[in-house]
Every structure is written in C-alpha cells, then in structure tokens.
C-alpha cells in the first residue's frame, strides 16, 4: 500500500497538490536553510583559515569549505533542518487529520487518502530536499567567501580557482545531491508514516512527531558519512 503511494506516478490533476506541498515544505523552509547555511559556511571559513594560515595554505580555504559543504554538511544539516521544520509539521498535520476523522471521512467519500494526502507530501519532499541542500551549500560557500576573502584577506583568485579545480560535478556535487534525495525520501516517508500510524490522541500525535524526528536524526547522522569512505 505504501509503495503504491510512493511509486505511483502522480496524476496530472494532483500536480497542484504537489506544488502546494513544495511551497509549504520547501519554500517555507528556505529562510531557516539560508540562515543556517550562511552561518555554518562563515564559521567553517573562520576556523579553517586559522588552521591553514599556520602552514601558509590559506589559499586552499575555498576548496576545503566547498568540499565539506557540498558533500557532507550541506545534505546532512539541511536534512536535519528539513526534518525539524517540515517533517514534524507533516506528522502533526496527518496525525490531527486522523484524530479528527478527516482521513476516515475522505476515505468514505471514495477518495484514496494515500493518493490525496500521502503521495503529494512524499513527492514534495523528494523534490524540495535536494534543492534546499544545494541552496544551503551555495549560501554556505558565499558566507565562507565573505569571511575568508572580504574579511580575512585570502586572495580571491586562489579561493575561487582552487574550488573550480578541485570540485567536480560527478565526483562531488552529484554525491551531495544523491544523499539529499535519499534524505528527502526518508524524512517524508517516516513523517507521513508516523502521522498515518499514530494513535489518534494528543499524546499519540506528540510521540509520533518526536519519534519521526528521532528516527531521522539517527538515520541522517549515521548514514551521512557512508557514501564517501573511499574518498578518505
């Protein structure tokens, strides 16, 4: 039944529902993602510069920050933020719909709630998560450039050309995108499942929301490193 909801190609008339969910889950998460991306990029640049300058290697700052953000921190931290903001909202919303019999009433009208409620949220998470992760990384790199180049005086040419030379789409950016797609799927899947499966009480909804987030934090932090060991 769940696979049916996930893998069934969305019907054309359901696209407005997916767009609405992309707005609610994705667009409304942009501010928190951009703010976190900027501050993490800035902090990485500041601390990275302090270490690299001791060996005269501050020109590698751009490359180091970009690799860390694009492959590791970008997908994982943006996914944790997404799980906290959007994942919890999905669980609570579906849980409340269940508790107030809105899901039952929909089913009794002959409307498949998996297709109407679950599927658009899954697809929206699947689409929004990689975009948010990329946004996080881009703003993080911009924050790093602001601190490294504008404030600490790293040579601008070295900062950007090092990044251009060392970061490739297939080896680095694509891996970050794949990670964030998987995270997007897992977060929304866990969130909708917990909402759908929760006990229809206020305590049941609260525990489902917490449980959904905890499951993803364990999964995200546990698997964030997995695709890259051969890179070490």
């Amino acid at each position: 039944m769940w696979w049916h909801a996930i893998w069934r190609k969305p019907e054309w008339k359901n696209w407005p529902l997916i767009v609405t969910q992309i707005y609610r889950l994705g667009v409304l998460s942009v501010v928190i993602t951009v703010m976190s991306g900027f501050s993490i990029g800035a902090v990485l640049a500041l601390q990275g510069y302090n270490q690299l300058v001791r060996y005269g290697s501050e020109s590698a700052l751009g490359l180091g920050v970009a690799l860390v953000l694009v492959m590791e921190i970008g997908p994982v931290v943006s996914a944790l933020l997404f799980a906290g903001r959007a994942g919890s909202a999905i669980t609570a919303e579906i849980g409340l719909m269940k508790a107030t019999e809105q899901l039952s009433s929909m089913e009794m009208m002959g409307v498949d709630s998996l297709q109407r409620i679950v599927s658009p949220r899954l697809w929206a998470g699947f689409i929004a998560m990689p975009i948010l992760a990329l946004m996080f990384s881009v703003v993080g790199i911009w924050g790093a450039a602001l601190v490294g180049v504008e404030w600490l005086g790293v040579y601008e040419g070295a900062f950007w050309s090092g990044m251009q030379d060392g970061v490739t789409f297939s080896d680095h950016v694509l891996k970050g995108i794949v990670k964030s797609v998987v995270f997007g799927l897992v977060i929304t899947w866990v969130a909708v499942f917990e909402g759908y499966d929760c006990q229809a009480t206020s305590e049941g909804i609260a525990s489902a929301t917490t449980r959904g987030r905890c499951i993803f934090v364990c999964f995200g932090t546990g698997t964030g490193f997995f695709p890259d060991p051969y890179h070490v």
């Binding site: 019999e101 809105q102 009208m109 002959g110």
Partner: peptide, 29 residues
C-alpha cells in the same frame, strides 16, 4: 472506493476539513 461513491456518511464529529471553507468542503467530492 467506487462503491463508496454511492454512500454518504455523517461522522459524529462532522469531520469537515479544517483547512477548507464550508463551500470547499461541500465542493470537495
């Protein structure tokens, strides 16, 4: 689901969709 299209059910709680107006609730099916 096809059979249910010929059934209507009034739930004890009403179960109107809280994000829709009364008009949109009735228009939904």
């Amino acid at each position: 689901f096809d059979v249910r299209k010929s059934m209507g059910m009034l739930f004890q709680s009403g179960a109107l969709f809280s994000d829709y107006s009364v008009f949109d609730n009735v228009a939904f099916p």
